[in-house]
Design a binder for these strands. Structure first.
Length: 235
DNA sequence: GCGACAG
DNA sequence: ATCTTGTCGC
């Protein structure tokens, strides 16, 4: 089982990332796992993702904002930026957040909930990118990872089934097996101001969109598609 | 020492 | 994440 010690900072980045790590630990104290908004009151929900060029010198961040009742797209925005560091596990926020800070200033409507591509509290310091962005924007947030960073779960999942993800005897997230296609489960965890129950409801509600079949919830699936297309054009 | 490690 | 050939199933 992975622990904090398994995620040491690479030698060549100790100068830069030691203070980033200290900040993670400090800010993690400010995370709330209580709901700010109940599931039934969510009207506007957004998915956020980043795509990278092959050379890894340019990235495109994107947001797709959805009306949770009609499933219509209310707004979508992209922003290009240069990643500050390469991909280093547990430091995704430091790599991708400049893009998210740009697009959040461009949107016409403030979402009730943000869904990030990555982890919330499934993180050695319980402070993944979804937690940090939710805290910085002061908006309820959670993350979805396609691969499990740490923790354990019962992998005998039925279609449409959920299973708690445990780490050090604590529930950090939920594994979800999509209803539609044979696919591996996804791993969701709260970022900030949202609870497991609400996340479960969102995953269930936004999974069955015939319009865009995906194991990812609709807003995130659309954001994923958006940034990939825009990057291909802008490159 | 080796392996594992969100995107 | 991105690239990329081949293969399986409906």
């Amino acid at each position: 089982m992975n622990t904090k010690d398994d995620f040491a900072i690479p030698e060549e980045y100790t100068d830069l990332l030691t203070s980033v790590r200290e900040k993670q630990i400090e800010l993690a104290l400010g995370i709330s796992l209580d709901n700010r908004i109940s599931f039934g009151d969510i009207r506007v929900i957004a998915g956020l993702d980043v795509a990278f060029s092959e050379k890894n010198d340019l990235a495109c961040a994107g947001i797709v904002i959805i009306d949770s009742r009609s499933f219509e797209v209310l707004d979508e925005q992209v922003a290009f930026f240069e990643p500050r560091i390469p991909y280093i596990p547990t430091f995704l926020h430091y790599r991708e957040s400049p893009g998210y800070h740009k697009i959040i200033t461009q949107i016409s409507e403030k979402p009730d909930v943000l869904i990030f591509d990555g982890n919330g509290i499934i993180h050695p310091f319980e402070f993944g990118i979804a937690s940090q962005m939710g805290l910085e924007f002061d908006i309820p947030s959670f993350g979805i990872a396609k691969k499990l960073l740490l923790g354990e779960y019962d992998n005998r999942l039925n279609r449409g089934g959920f299973s708690d993800i445990l780490h050090n005897e604590k529930t950090l997230g939920i594994a979800f097996q999509s209803l539609a296609p044979p696919a591996k489960p996804i791993f969701a965890s709260p970022g900030h101001l949202i609870d497991m129950r609400t996340i479960t409801n969102i995953l269930r509600d936004f999974n069955l969109q015939q319009k865009f079949p995906s194991k990812l919830p609709l807003p995130l699936a659309l954001a994923d598609k958006l940034v990939r297309e825009k990057l291909a054009i802008g490159t």
